[in-house]
């Protein structure tokens, strides 16, 4: 009981403290690479946390979650192409676009269950992908280079490595806290209850559809925000952001870390990105190693990293 309480509160707290100290480490050891890499990781962690919210708590296996990264990134990139750099315009717009896409595709996908849901979200993700590849005015297949970063009321916060890191960190922390609070609310109980026994939920008068859709839209919106950050981080947007491999990787991050705890998704994102970076340092064909590793994790690694930490 004590250890459970410790991992439930202490672990995420420790995690965020360590993450908050990364720029300090980078400054002391003059290691810019670590800072940039950590920024990228945290952006993916935001997406992974949003995915865990619907996957871990609502049992919605969305195989098209990368689409929101792309849509959010394109919203920022396209506005920049038209010389709109203000973050207070582009970021809310990126989120609104994603919310709308999630609302429409979610409303259709959530009419189905199980494998249908997996395949349909995959197909809608692919739709977003192909649509951007055919946007010839915005680079099509080749993507779109941004000649700068978003502006936050003339502060230039997006341009400094450290300040940008803390923006990303702040978004991650806020997303985590908001979603965590929600999982414990009445709303969260409905989501989890519907996962455990849908017939029982209906019998007490709750039709889970609207709640699932709300969670789905929320997750898409947060992922879109991460996409807007990603565009700034890379100063480049491309259809590759939303390839279905990316959606698969996001699920892998959630499972790798341990599904249904939110901070597990952060751990998973870190572990996945570090693993990829390390393996690809040995060989460009790192997927030859990662593919079988993933199979082994699925077959024998129940509970992910969190499960391992708890010793279960």
């Amino acid at each position: 009981m004590m250890t459970r309480r410790l991992t439930a509160v202490g672990l995420p707290a420790a995690l965020f403290v360590v993450l908050a100290l990364v720029p300090l480490y980078a400054g002391v050891f003059d290691d810019r690479f670590v800072l940039l890499f950590a920024t990228r990781i945290l952006i993916f962690a935001i997406v992974a946390v949003s995915l865990d919210f619907i996957l871990g708590y609502g049992e919605m296996v969305s195989f098209g979650h990368a689409a929101y990264i792309g849509l959010g990134a394109y919203a920022v990139g396209i506005l920049a192409e038209h010389d709109v750099w203000a973050a207070w315009i582009s970021f809310p717009l990126a989120m609104a676009v994603c919310a709308l896409f999630a609302l429409v595709t979610g409303a259709i996908s959530l009419r189905t269950r199980g494998v249908y849901f997996i395949m349909i979200t995959l197909a809608f993700g692919q739709m977003a992908y192909y649509t951007t590849t055919s946007l010839s005015a915005y680079g099509g297949d080749d993507g779109l280079t941004m000649w700068g970063r978003s502006e936050l009321f003339g502060t230039g916060l997006f341009n400094g490595d450290t300040s940008f890191y803390y923006i990303v960190f702040g978004v991650l922390l806020a997303s985590y806290l908001i979603l965590k609070v929600m999982t414990r609310s009445r709303f969260g109980r409905v989501l989890e209850g519907a996962k455990q026994n849908e017939a029982r939920m209906e019998a007490i008068g709750i039709d889970p559809y609207r709640y699932r859709l709300t969670a789905f839209v929320l997750a898409g919106t947060i992922a879109g925000l991460a996409g807007a950050l990603m565009a700034n981080q890379a100063e480049f947007v491309s259809p590759a952001y939303m390839s279905w491999h990316r959606s698969g990787e996001l699920i892998v991050m959630v499972i790798l870390g341990g599904m249904g705890h939110l901070h597990g998704a952060i751990l998973g994102a870190i572990a996945y990105m570090v693993l990829e970076e390390t393996l690809s340092g040995y060989t460009e064909h790192w997927r030859l190693i990662f593919g079988p590793l993933l199979i082994l994790i699925v077959l024998y690694g129940k509970g992910g990293l969190l499960g391992a930490i708890r010793g279960r």
């Binding site: 609070v181 009445r186 109980r189 007490i204 008068g205 709640y211």
Partner: peptide, 19 residues
């Protein structure tokens, strides 16, 4: 408690801790 909550109407309450 979930059944009680269902009786209250909608469950779109996001922030107060249910427990």
């Amino acid at each position: 408690a979930l059944a009680v909550q269902a009786k209250d109407g909608h469950s779109f309450r996001f922030f107060k801790r249910a427990s």
